[in-house]
Amino acid sequence: MVRVKHRYLLVNILYPELLKAGRESSAKLPDAVTFHQPTTSGLNSRGLEKAIKHGVEELFGDYGYGAIRGSLQVKYLSTATSTFIIKVARDHYRMVWTALSFMTKVPGVHDAKPCVFRVIRVSGTIRESQEEAIRRAREQILAAQREQGEKSDLTLAGIFGPPGTKKDDVMMVDKGDGEEEGSNEG
């Protein structure tokens, strides 16, 4: 009996849109901060799961819905950092990812803010996702401080090391995903 393999998607909710009301006030905040706003607490894991399933059904029909229904699970949801981790069967995680790319609103919330879902890591174990999430959160703080022009970040950078190169972060999702992917497709 072969173990069922899964993928864990680490996803960030980003808010790139300018706030209509607070144009002046938001101008003071660095962009790195406003992109990573906290999500409304109205979002819960059940609503999120439902929205993803609905998105998959819209894009891939009954086949897609059936393929992911059994395995899709929200493992972690933090509205304060706008981060969540979902678990899905390895064969079908691309459909879930696509559905996330097509979502433009916080699901399950009345009068929701427009947002963008960005998958920042695909990994085979939840532990890797968790470590990556922690690393990201740390770097966001540093980036925000750098943008603000604070000198205090030097001490933090001394503790956590210099900021990683951007290039590694951008396509991070492809790491650790390669060899299994090859056997899967080839």
């Binding site: 459909m95 990812w97 996330l100 960005r118 998958v119 920042i120 396509m171 999702v173």
Partner: peptide, 18 residues
């Protein structure tokens, strides 16, 4: 046309790979 239409590079690559 609006900033909401922009996706991260990894998301774009996945979209086209689907």
């Amino acid at each position: 046309t609006s900033v909401l239409g922009v996706r991260a590079p990894a998301d774009v690559v996945n979209l086209f790979s689907v």
